[in-house]
Design a protein around this nucleic acid. Structure first.
Length: 280
DNA sequence: AAGATCGCCAACCGCTACCTA
DNA sequence: GTAGGTAGCGGTTGGCGATCT
C-alpha cells in the first residue's frame, strides 16, 4: 500500500463536515475524479481514499438527484432488480442521478419491509408473484393516474406510440418492445402465468434502450388489481425515456405503498399465496 | 414530557476485479 | 505469471430524526 503510516493513525471517520465537503469538491473540480488515495495526501483531508470516493459519488456529485424516488423510478427498480438481482450499481446506471447506495437503501427499507409483511422471503417466488400481481400493476395505475393529473406532466417525447394492445403489444415508432416470448429471461423463475395468457397483453415500454429488460405486463396476470381499477392501457400509450424521468419530479412522494399494501391487500395476498402453496 | 421503538440513510467494511510494473 | 496498488461493488452498521407509548 502507498498509504503512509500516518494515514492509518489520523484517518477520520464518521459524518463529513461542510469544510471537508468544500475541500473535496474543490479538489475534484481541479483534478477530476479518480486517484482517490491521493486526494487525502494532496488536499489535506484526513480521510481514506475510499471515504473520499464514496462521499463524492453518493453526495457531492453535481448531477445527483435528491429527493423521493418517483413512481417511475420505483417501477424501473423493480423491473431491473427482477432481471439483475442485487447489482445495485448496474441498476443505478439506468436511473440517472441516483446512486447505487440510494437504490440499495430503497430496496432494503421498502421492498424488504413488504416481504416481511407478507411473511415471505424477498427473493422467493411468492414475493415475486406478489410484485407482479399487485405491486407493479398498482404502480402502473398510479403512474397512469399521475399522468392524467395536471400537476404532473410527462414531458412528451417526439416518439409516437401505437397502442396495439389488442394484438398484444405497444409498439414504439422505431422500437418494438419484445414480448415475454421474446425475452424469457425476464423473471424466468416466475410461475408461468404470463406465458399462457395471450389475451390483451399490456406491453409497457419504459425506456427504449431497455427494451430487452422490461417486464411484459399481462392484464390477465393481474386479476386482483383489476378488480377495482383497470390498467388503463389507453394511458400507457405514452412512454418515458430516461430524460423524461429525470424531468418528472416525485410529486407523489406520499406513502403510496400504504394504499397498496393496506391490511386488506396484505391479507388478501397472503390468502393467495397460501392458496398457491396448496395448489403446488 | 420522556423514554422506547422505528425507519431512513450516510458511511464503513470486506471482498473482488482490474491495472500495472 | 504474479504481486502490489487501486477502484468499485454489495453487505452491513450506526446515528439521528420521527413516531409511538
Amino acid at each position: 500500500m502507498s498509504e503512509t503510516p500516518q494515514s492509518y493513525v489520523d484517518v477520520r471517520k464518521g459524518p463529513w463536515t461542510e469544510e471537508e465537503d468544500l475541500i473535496l469538491k474543490s479538489y475534484v473540480n481541479v483534478h477530476g475524479e479518480g486517484r482517490w488515495n491521493s486526494v487525502a495526501n494532496l488536499s489535506g483531508l484526513k480521510r481514506s481514499g475510499k471515504s473520499c470516493r464514496l462521499r463524492w459519488m453518493n453526495y457531492l456529485r453535481p448531477e445527483l438527484r435528491r429527493g423521493n424516488i418517483s413512481l417511475q423510478e420505483q417501477l424501473l427498480i423493480l423491473q431491473l432488480h427482477s432481471r439483475w438481482g442485487n447489482r445495485w450499481s448496474k441498476i443505478a446506471q439506468e436511473l440517472p442521478g441516483r446512486t447505487d447506495n440510494e437504490i440499495k437503501n430503497y430496496w432494503r427499507t421498502r421492498v424488504q419491509k413488504l416481504a416481511k409483511q407478507l411473511q415471505c422471503e424477498v427473493d422467493s417466488k411468492q414475493f415475486r408473484d406478489a410484485m407482479r400481481s399487485v405491486w407493479i400493476p398498482r404502480l402502473i395505475e398510479r403512474i397512469c393516474a399521475s399522468s392524467q393529473s395536471p400537476s404532473v406532466q410527462l414531458s412528451a417525447t417526439t416518439a409516437t406510440y401505437t397502442d396495439t394492445i389488442s394484438t398484444g403489444q405497444i409498439t414504439h415508432a422505431d422500437t418494438t418492445i419484445g414480448s415475454v416470448q421474446d425475452d424469457p429471461s425476464v423473471l424466468p423463475e416466475l410461475s408461468g402465468t404470463s406465458s399462457d395468457s395471450h389475451d390483451a397483453i399490456a406491453q409497457v415500454s419504459y425506456v427504449p434502450e431497455l427494451a430487452g429488460c422490461c417486464n411484459p405486463l399481462s392484464v390477465s396476470d393481474y386479476p386482483h388489481s383489476l378488480g377495482n381499477g383497470s390498467l388503463c392501457s389507453e394511458n400507457l400509450a405514452g412512454t418515458w425515456n430516461i430524460d423524461d424521468w429525470v424531468g418528472l419530479e416525485a410529486r407523489d412522494g406520499g406513502d403510496w405503498m400504504a394504499s397498496v399494501w393496506n391490511e386488506e391487500n396484505i391479507w388478501f395476498l397472503r390468502q393467495q399465496l397460501y392458496d398457491d402453496d396448496n395448489m403446488n
